[in-house]
Amino acid sequence: MGAAIYDSTADDATKIGDVKDVVLDKDGKANLIVIGVGGFLGVGEKNVAYDFSKIEWVNKKGERWLVANTTKEELQAQPNFDTKAYDTANNQPATSAATDQTATASIDKSALTDLPSEKISAANLIGTNVYGADDAKVGQIGDILTGDKKVDAIIVDVGGFLGIAEKKVAIGMENLKFMTDKNGNRYLYTNFTKDQLEAQTAYDKGTYAQNRDKQRIIVKQ
């Protein structure tokens, strides 16, 4: 989230917006990318939807750029993107008291239902508590990592206290199962223990592309 989007790979390329969100389809693949365009310091900014498959990832000036074959003016002419359809928690953050538990002993899993991927907005997953083996809380989603034409992984903050000494671990999107309760709170259950995640190679933004196989783990079915 927050990555800059340019209109071309030319040396005089213009930044046309920033990534605000990614919306998934029913198969859990990236469908739309929400771009914040215009405004100043977030004031007057407009969020519009753009076909994720038309976004290109390119290496430019030693960095990875997101490129969209469009202009700022064309984006500004698009209608505002309505995020309400993807806000299962009715605008309540996923870190509300109802989900801020160290274990799910107080959560009736039988009352939870699957959250269809087409109802998932990547930005709304940030803050979702992650549970592992024995239904113990193992961390919290801190970011969403997009790759070539897809959402590649979630970044889980593990350990630490109030954000201090947390370790960031990349978990691949494969086989992830999100659930929700009647209040719209979101839950992610995995089969990892906290010790396993703390022993995993930490996610590093600068080296992830070169060391993806080491820094990324997936849930086994």
Rank of each mutant, 00 (worst) to 15 (best):
P116E: 07
L162P: 05
L66H: 04
A136L: 15
G38W: 00
I144R: 03
Q215V: 03
N211L: 12
T146H: 03
S96G: 15
A111P: 10
I217C: 05
G163Q: 00
A89H: 01
K61C: 08
A30C: 13
G163N: 01
A89E: 01
G127H: 05
L188T: 04
A105V: 14
I141T: 06
L197R: 00
R212Q: 15
D25T: 03
A89K: 05
Q101K: 15
Y187T: 08
D157Y: 12
G159D: 02
E73S: 09
D51L: 04
E45Q: 07
G36A: 08
L112E: 04
A122N: 10
K194T: 08
T14V: 14
R216C: 13
V67H: 04
D7P: 12
K167A: 06
D181A: 13
I35D: 00
I141S: 06
E63L: 11
K60N: 12
R216F: 08
G38Q: 02
A68E: 00
A133I: 03
N129D: 13
E73H: 02
D12T: 10
R64M: 06
A103S: 14
Y86W: 06
A133H: 07
Y187S: 09
G38M: 00
L162R: 03
M173K: 01
Y86L: 12
N80S: 15
Y203G: 07
Y131S: 14
K61D: 15
Y203T: 05
A49P: 11
D135N: 15
E174H: 03
I120Q: 06
V169G: 02
G39C: 03
D157T: 12
Q200S: 07
K168N: 11
D7S: 08
K26N: 12
F40Q: 10
T207D: 10
T95L: 10
A202R: 11
A68V: 01
V138E: 03
N59P: 08
I154C: 08
D195N: 09
I126A: 07
V23T: 07
M173G: 09
K54I: 00
A209C: 08
A30N: 08
I33C: 12
D157R: 14
R212T: 10
Q210F: 04
G36D: 01
D157L: 15
S8P: 09
E166V: 12
D213Y: 04
K109Q: 12
G39N: 02
T104D: 15
F40K: 11
A170N: 05
I141E: 05
K109E: 07
A30D: 02
Q200I: 02
G184K: 01
I171D: 04
I217L: 08
T9S: 13
F178Q: 09
T14P: 09
Y6I: 00
Q101G: 09
N80E: 14
N183R: 08
A133V: 09
N91S: 15
A97Y: 11
M1V: 08
G147T: 06
Y189H: 06
N183V: 06
K46E: 00
S117F: 07
T193H: 03
I164T: 09
A97C: 06
D135Q: 13
L162I: 06
L125Q: 06
K72V: 02
